[in-house]
C-alpha cells in the first residue's frame, strides 16, 4: 500500500511540475526505456525524446481529475514508450516486429492518440507564438505563461503605465488569436 501512496504522491508532484518528483520519476524509469529503445534500433536521443513524450502523456493524465492509476507507473511509462517507438519505427518505414518483451504492458493506444492531438495543439500554439515576433511573444508569455501582473509587466518591459501595457497586450493577443485559430481550425 505504501508503494501505491508513493506513486500517487509522485503523480501529484508531476501534475504540479515539482522538480523533485520529476527527478525521481526520471531516475526510476529512464534506464528501462533507454534500454528498450537502444535494443530496438534507436539512439540515445531517440530514447530521450520518447521518454519525455511519455512523461508528458503521464502528466496530462495526472492533471485530469478523473485519472486513476490502475497499474504501476513503470508499466504505464513502458507501455507508452513502446507504443510510441513502434509507431515511429513504422513511420520511418522500418517495419520491426517488436520483440516480445518480458515487461508487462497495459493498453495505452487511446492515451497515445489523445496525446498526439495535444501535441498538435501545442505545436500550433508554439508556431503561432514563434511567428508573433518580439516584444509581443515575451509580453504574452509573461502574462499567460508566467502569470505576471500587468503592473509588473509594464515595469519590466518599460511601459510608462499599465494601461499602455494592456493596450499593447491586447493588440498582441488579437494577432496571436488570429494566427492560432487560423491553424487550429484547419487542424480541426
Amino acid at each position: 500500500m505504501k508503494a501505491d501512496t508513493n506513486e500517487q504522491l509522485l503523480l501529484r508532484g508531476l501534475a504540479h511540475n515539482d522538480s523533485k518528483a520529476i527527478d525521481t520519476l526520471y531516475k526510476e524509469n529512464f534506464g528501462m526505456v533507454q534500454a528498450f529503445i537502444l535494443n530496438n534500433n534507436g539512439t540515445y536521443d531517440d530514447a530521450r525524446d520518447i521518454f519525455q513524450e511519455a512523461m508528458i502523456t503521464l502528466y496530462e493524465k495526472a492533471r485530469s481529475e478523473s485519472f486513476v492509476l490502475t497499474c504501476q507507473i513503470k508499466t504505464y511509462v513502458y507501455s507508452v514508450c513502446r507504443r510510441l517507438w513502434l509507431k515511429r519505427l513504422q513511420q520511418m518505414g522500418r517495419y520491426v516486429t517488436a520483440s516480445d518483451s518480458l515487461e508487462e504492458t497495459v493498453p495505452v493506444e487511446d492515451d497515445v492518440e489523445i496525446q498526439e492531438k495535444k501535441n498538435q495543439e501545442f505545436l500550433i500554439m508554439d508556431r503561432a507564438l514563434g511567428s508573433l515576433g518580439e516584444p509581443c511573444k515575451s509580453l504574452l508569455e509573461a502574462f499567460y505563461l508566467q502569470k505576471k501582473g500587468m503592473l509588473e509587466i509594464a515595469d519590466s518591459f518599460g511601459y510608462t503605465n499599465a494601461d499602455n501595457a494592456k493596450n499593447q497586450k491586447y493588440k498582441c493577443l488579437m494577432r496571436l488569436k488570429k494566427l492560432f485559430f487560423a491553424q487550429y481550425n484547419i487542424g480541426e
Binding site: N17, I22, F30, Q52, I56, K118, F122, Y144, L145
Partner: peptide, 24 residues
C-alpha cells in the same frame, strides 16, 4: 485560454524534463 494553459503547462514540463535530464 484553455489552449494557452495547456501550452503553458506542457512548456513548463518540457523545460522541467530537460533540466531534470541534464541534472541526472
Amino acid at each position: 485560454l484553455h489552449q494557452m494553459n495547456n501550452y503553458a503547462g506542457t512548456k513548463a514540463l518540457k523545460n522541467a524534463l530537460h533540466d531534470s535530464h541534464n541534472r541526472l
